[in-house]
Design a protein around this nucleic acid. Structure first.
Lengths: 218, 218
DNA sequence: CGAATTGGATACTGATCCGTATCTTACGGA
DNA sequence: TCCGTAAGATACGGATCAGTATCCAATTCG
């Protein structure tokens, strides 16, 4: 309840010109980064439904005015936070090594959880069924779809090289890895551990591609 | 905007004593069912964030008073709606046939989407990170966890019979089927088609269990 | 038929939150 | 050093919504 001390300090003390004085006012990217931190922090602690501009401002150690000077609406702010924090799968260099490439692309999906503090798929479904699923579509288009497509491409090339059975080079198999990570983030805990990613690669994705795996059961 | 016609009729006309007169007032289970329909309808159309008691009441053709006579709070109502509509995996009879049992259990996961009009995992993540994840935990505990455990059990028995390779009888493989369905519901469309369930069984789960699938890649 | 029960309409309170307006104050460049 | 730009505090209007109170009407049961 009570009174919040008005002279509450920000978490980060930047190296200002006067080293003795506490940095009380951030600008530009420093401020922007603090706001994005606050957004994901709020998503993690109170959830999308209870995320308010007041709370984000308070968590960032700033005020609502600053937020509305940058974004017209709450959704714009969140979408912008995502665009700045989500990894870009297209930047991942592919080596041609099947296991390494699949692993790298799945780590990209994993990074989309950790970079948003595990709130990525909370956001995906929070808006499901709404009129303008801005945030939802941002994540799907930015990370999940590209990763699945890139994994599919990696599988296709491996099939051309004869490393895997050709029938396994499809989007269903390509989607299995991301699906396992999404599942883990939703059911177990928000941020997916490294060992789990490795397990998925070695016990799910790669076994599905081996020559001897039965091609059809139905 | 304007005025909603006060004499708006309910969708369902029950067979009252006077056949000529329009049934205007439902009771008991008929009313309860209409309310649950309205809950999932609202979740689908406006989303969890915009689901209000007023809107649910309006969609059910009743008033807020009726809702608060049954449930103390909004979350209780939603949780109750879930408990009445979600399938119960434990009721599924297991035949001992690997493919049939896996398929039946995955159809149970699928049913948890269709019975909630595709909103099940919207609910799972809408509350992620909140203090009291009532709705979230209801779905996980009621459907997903039981299904994964039952699939794991089915795999274990198949391994004992020598039908599948023993290393595949683990929870990671057991989770792959549900994970694919969750993924589909989140990314593609809310309700998962039958053919997709069959594809997952025949192209993901069963291939992972075949004797010749490489046991380890890492 | 008559009484008890339950459904339904409406209005109200208090809280919350979005988005804006206003004013003060720190920073940083010229 | 001075001035422009942007940060930050605060307050406010308007809207929305949860939950309650009150009154009325229909259905069911005795």
């Amino acid at each position: 309840m009570g009174v919040v001390p008005a002279d509450q300090q920000h978490a980060q003390v930047s190296q200002g010109p006067r080293a003795g004085a506490v940095a009380t006012r951030r600008r530009g990217d420093a401020l922007l980064g603090a706001i994005f931190d606050a957004v994901f922090d709020q998503l993690r602690t109170v959830g999308y439904a209870n995320l308010t501009m007041d709370r984000v401002a308070a968590a960032a150690g700033t005020s609502k005015t600053v937020l509305y000077r940058r974004w017209a609406a709450k959704e714009d702010m969140i979408a912008d936070a995502l665009r700045h924090r989500l990894p870009t799968p297209g930047d991942i260099p592919l080596t041609g090594d099947l296991r390494a490439d699949v692993h790298a692309l799945l780590r990209c999906v994993q990074a989309s959880f950790s970079s948003t503090r595990g709130t990525a798929f909370q956001l995906v479904s929070a808006e499901a069924g709404c009129g303008r699923p801005v945030v939802r579509q941002t994540i799907i288009d930015h990370v999940v779809e590209p990763c699945v497509q890139l994994i599919a491409e990696v599988l296709r090339r491996a099939a051309e090289r004869g490393e895997i059975r050709p029938e396994a080079a499809n989007e269903l198999v390509a989607a299995s890895g991301p699906a396992m990570l999404v599942q883990y983030s939703l059911i177990r805990e928000p941020v997916v551990p490294d060992e789990f990613v490795a397990s998925v690669v070695d016990q799910i994705v790669l076994p599905l591609t081996t020559r001897s795996a039965a091609a059809e059961h139905g």
